[in-house]
Design a protein around this nucleic acid. Structure first.
Lengths: 122, 122
DNA sequence: CCGCATCCCTTTTGATACTG
DNA sequence: CAGTATCAAAAGGGATGCGG
């Protein structure tokens, strides 16, 4: 009886701990487009205009806003070239690269999910 | 030169593919509270009122709405006991359990992130 | 080329009260 | 206990035009 209760309390504790951790993660990458942006930058540095083309449906306003958030959180680095006209490239910082696994896990589940839906449809 | 271009095109293709996959995942678990709910149910089945207590800040309305979404997508199963008063328990379906890795990855990153922030603060 | 400011509409979320 | 209904507030997001 006592053991059962302890077990339950432990599960509760781990659960709460995880919820807080998930919340922390989502504060950083929870925007509508953030993970997509990070996923793009996993492969190469990209210019603002390239990201705009690559990420279907995003508006310029949202792209700059999300990039700024990511920059503030130290995940993305912004570099301006003083050419004329100027060009701005974005790349993952070392810290941003720690998100590669996470984006891959999310992408993999999405692919599996899509396959499941398609196979159910047939 | 031609190789360089091919390489670039391949990266672009993979990138777009991942963005779509990420979008698919987020359609399913992208709500404000969904991952927290799933994370709770990773440990044990829970009643509506228990989830309400466990997930700090969620309102009853949001909890039922998010649970309904998860149920529709086949991730969560809802079971009603005809006691008096009634009780309703929620649990992950087998398919929902495929999200365990993902929630853990997200929680782990959040924990590492919190530690980073704290250590920077000192 | 990059991206901010403004206006304006849509969606999401919260508070509260109420039902079976 | 487990929700639903209603209203109000807040956040999200698009379009456009301007400035560096």
């Amino acid at each position: 009886m006592e053991n059962k209760k302890t077990e339950y309390d432990n599960a509760t504790k781990v659960c709460r701990h995880n919820i807080r951790a998930i919340h922390d993660t989502m504060d950083v990458i929870g925007g509508k487009w953030k993970i997509s942006i990070i996923s793009c930058l996993c492969f190469e540095t990209m210019r603002y205009s390239e990201l705009l083309k690559e990420i279907e449906g995003i508006s310029g306003k949202m792209l700059s806003r999300e990039l700024k958030d990511l920059e503030i959180n130290g995940l993305v680095m912004r570099t301006v070239s003083n050419t004329n006209p100027i060009s701005v490239v974005y790349e993952l910082t070392e810290y941003g690269e720690t998100l590669k696994d996470l984006t891959l896990t999310i992408a993999n589940w999405g692919n599996a999910h899509r396959e499941k839906i398609i196979s159910e449809y047939n």
